[in-house]
Design a protein around this nucleic acid. Structure first.
Lengths: 243, 243
DNA sequence: CAACAATTGAGAGCACTGCTCTTGACAGAC
DNA sequence: GTCTGTCAAGAGCAGTGCTCTCAATTGTTG
């Protein structure tokens, strides 16, 4: 109906294809709303069909099953998080590695607190019986970690990473894993910094998950912004981004 | 039927009460099995009733609704994790703070990898529409963190915590939270160590969650034991348990 | 423009879920 | 030996995912 509303990736030839793409986009939009309000396990194709003003069996013309809709929403959420992180990181100069690291962390937390159910879909307990198809989800799902690795390795190559003081020795089996990652991604950082980077990665999401999933008590921590900033500062130290 | 099978908390008078307690125990046991195999969202009272050899409405005589069964399973899982942690920690001398910290971490990870669905119920995305009743879940749910705090504060009081080098300044709003915790639990550790302890806490579960929930790729890390041990070593340093 | 064919929506239906209510049977208590 | 409280069974309601058939709409093509 609206001409400029077609922000699809490629121009679609026939009007049928356009209408079809629009319907799928509507389904994803409605699914995102349901996901945001009720959570992944409560996502119902019938409810989406109702909101779409159509009988339940009709949505199966556009989406094979519930799992496929879940995959679309997974990719959608990964990309939105990736965009938020990119925007926050790009707002800072390329050589401000410490600032970029903290901006990445804050962007993840901000998005997660704004979209708890979608964050839960990405980083919470896996949906039972659902296995994300790697072909579609791997790329968007790795945007944040690749961005983090880019910051840390960039800092190392710029000589801005303090040699991680007194870290434990990296055992050889782990060293092989790290070497594989290093060669695949073309990294320069040595084992210890890489291993510490992995800890920083999981710790960042651990802190965010605790907050989003309500693992802190309801009122043990009131100053959560300050707590998270403190954690980011310590994690920056672990990564080697000296204070 | 079996005399010595009654490991209930108190002796139950009438045979009716005994039969009733036994049935509830059976329901919890079956629920635990379903939870372990299919996950929290797929837990079905009807399926439990089938396994119990009884019609679906009959279980409502013993359990008010699905949420109440979920609460029973939550407490059950929290206590099993707490027991595993206690056993692992108590196996080491009281003054081996570093060893006890790492034993706690490994116990959490081991239990989580053995019981991924139950771990997900405790530390994953919240079950939509379910709010855990604090009265029943707070105590078992805080066993691990209290144990961790005990180790760290014990180490501090024994003079075994190295003054956390170059950690960020703790802002005053956060300091108030920490002071409240300190006075409520009777702790001695100063702000910085307490704040670092919180990071260690969330980071531990972040690392475990990444592994249990499959956030690492399928084969980016093969040497996961070594990776986790390395993380524990670094986290021990963050906590102040010098190497 | 008319005929065709592809696409689409509607509706019924199956098996499953949580949960409620009524009915009838059983067992412990007096 | 009666009586009362507890229990399981069954029907039923509203919801879920998903499949199948049928009719209508709609775009395309001769």
């Amino acid at each position: 109906m609206n001409d400029p509303a077609s922000d699809a990736e490629t121009t679609l030839r026939t009007p049928r294809e356009r209408a079809r793409a629009q319907t799928i986009a509507d389904i994803v939009r409605l699914g995102r709303e349901h996901l945001a309000t009720q959570g992944a396990a409560a996502l119902s194709l019938r409810a989406v069909a109702r909101d779409l003003g159509v009988v339940s069996s009709a949505v199966y013309r556009y989406v094979a099953n519930r799992d496929e809709l879940l995959t679309l929403l997974l990719v959608d959420a990964y990309n939105e998080l990736g965009d938020a992180v990119d925007t926050a990181v790009n707002a800072l100069p390329e050589l401000d590695f410490d600032g970029r690291f903290k901006a990445l962390g804050r962007a993840v937390r901000t998005w997660a607190l704004r979209e708890p159910a979608r964050y839960g879909l990405l980083f919470g307990s896996p949906v039972p019986g659902y296995q994300a198809p790697a072909v579609q989800t791997t790329r968007p799902g790795t945007r944040v970690i690749y961005r983090l690795i880019g910051i840390l390795d960039g800092a190392y190559q710029a000589g801005a990473l303090t040699a991680a003081a007194r870290t434990a020795v990296v055992p050889s089996a782990l060293s092989a894993d790290l070497e594989a990652i290093r060669s695949e991604l073309g990294l320069a950082m040595p084992d210890e910094l890489q291993a510490n980077g992995a800890l920083v990665w999981t710790s960042l999401f651990g802190a965010v998950s605790f907050e989003v999933f309500g693992q802190y008590g309801p009122d043990t921590f009131r100053a959560r912004d300050e707590l998270f900033d403190h954690h980011l500062a310590v994690l920056a130290g672990v990564a080697g981004l000296g204070a």
